[in-house]
C-alpha cells in the first residue's frame, strides 16, 4: 500500500514531524540549559559547564524531594492499582444500580481542577484530624490516579471477548481463578500502561499536592519554589537526568518486548 510515497503520506509525515518538533522543543531547551554557565537562563547560552550536575548531586534538599516524590508515586500508584483493577473488574462483571453514575464518577478526579480537589480533600482531612504531610499527599494522589487507572483498565475489559469469561466459568473455574488465569493476562498491558502513566503524572503533580504537603516537599513543589526564588540550572540538570532515565526505560522495554515477540 505504500510502495510509493503519495502526496497525503508526505503531508502526514510532515505534520507528524512538526508535531514531534513542537513536543520536543521545550524539552531540548530544558536539557541544553542544564549545561549553561549562567545561573539565569537567557538566550543565547553563555557557555558550557557541568557544574550544575555536580551542584545538583550535592543539593540534599533537591535529592530528598525527588526521593519523596518517588515514594508518593509508587505508593499512590500501587494503591490506585489495588483499588482500581478489582474495581474495574467488578464494574465489568456486575450489574448494579448507579453503575452508569459510577462510570462517570471515576474519571472526575482526573478531570477536576487539582487546586479544587486539593482544597476539598484538605478541608475534609482537617475535619477528621489528618495533618498535612506525606500521608495526606498519598491520599490526594491516589484519588486522582484512580481516575487514570480505572477508566483505562475498564475500557480494556470491555473490549475483552465475553465468551472468554463464560468459557472459563463453564469449565468450572472459580471467580478468582478466572480473574488470575484468564482476565489478568489479557489486561496486563493496560494495567502496566496505566501504572506507568500514573507514576508519570504523580511525579509531576503540583495543584493537589500544593494544599496537602505541609513540610513534606515533593520534587515538583521544590522545583516550583526554586524557579520562583533562587533559580539555578540544577533544576534543568535533575530534569535532564529524569528524562534520560525515562528514555532508557522506554528503549529497554521496547527491546525486551521485541525479544518476547520473537
Amino acid at each position: 500500500m505504500s510502495k510509493k510515497f503519495s502526496g497525503s503520506t508526505v503531508l502526514v509525515i510532515i505534520l507528524a514531524v512538526c508535531g514531534f518538533l513542537f513536543l520536543y522543543l521545550p524539552v531540548v531547551v530544558v536539557v541544553m540549559y542544564s549545561f549553561n554557565t549562567d545561573a539565569i537562563s537567557s538566550f543565547p547560552m553563555s557557555g558550557f559547564t557541568l557544574k550544575w550536575y555536580k551542584a545538583m548531586f550535592a543539593n540534599t534538599e533537591l535529592i530528598k524531594s525527588l526521593r519523596n516524590s518517588l515514594i508518593v508515586a509508587f505508593i499512590g500508584t500501587g494503591l490506585a492499582i489495588l483499588i482500581g483493577v478489582p474495581g474495574a473488574y467488578g464494574m465489568y462483571k456486575l450489574k448494579f444500580p448507579g453503575k452508569k453514575a459510577l462510570e462517570k464518577m471515576v474519571i472526575l478526579p482526573m478531570m477536576l481542577p487539582g487546586i479544587i480537589t486539593g482544597i476539598t480533600i484538605l478541608s475534609f482531612l482537617q475535619l477528621v484530624g489528618v495533618v498535612q504531610g506525606a500521608f495526606a499527599v498519598v491520599l490526594g494522589h491516589t484519588t486522582f490516579l484512580l481516575g487514570t487507572v480505572l477508566p483505562q483498565v475498564y475500557t480494556r475489559l470491555r473490549q475483552l471477548d465475553r465468551n472468554l469469561l463464560e468459557a472459563s466459568q463453564d469449565l468450572g473455574a472459580g471467580g478468582a481463578q478466572t480473574f488470575f488465569h484468564v482476565i489478568l493476562p489479557n489486561i496486563k498491558t493496560s494495567v502496566f500502561g496505566a501504572a506507568l502513566l500514573s507514576i508519570t503524572l504523580s511525579l509531576d503533580e503540583i495543584p493537589v499536592t500544593f494544599f496537602l504537603n505541609g513540610v513534606f516537599t515533593t520534587l515538583p513543589i521544590k522545583i516550583y519554589g526554586m524557579t520562583r526564588n533562587g533559580f539555578t540550572p540544577e533544576i534543568n540538570a535533575i530534569c535532564s537526568l529524569i528524562l534520560l532515565a525515562s528514555v532508557a526505560a522506554v528503549i529497554i522495554s521496547n527491546k525486551l518486548s521485541a525479544k518476547e515477540a520473537v
Binding site: G19, P26, V30
Partner: peptide, 25 residues
C-alpha cells in the same frame, strides 16, 4: 510502541520547567 512512547516522554519533564522553556523560546 517506541514511537508512541516518544510522544509521551515529554510528560516526564517537569511541568514548571516546560512552561519556563517557553520564556526562552
Amino acid at each position: 510502541q517506541l514511537f508512541y512512547m516518544l510522544a509521551i516522554i515529554p510528560l516526564w519533564v517537569s511541568y514548571i520547567m516546560r512552561a519556563y522553556s517557553w520564556r526562552i523560546i
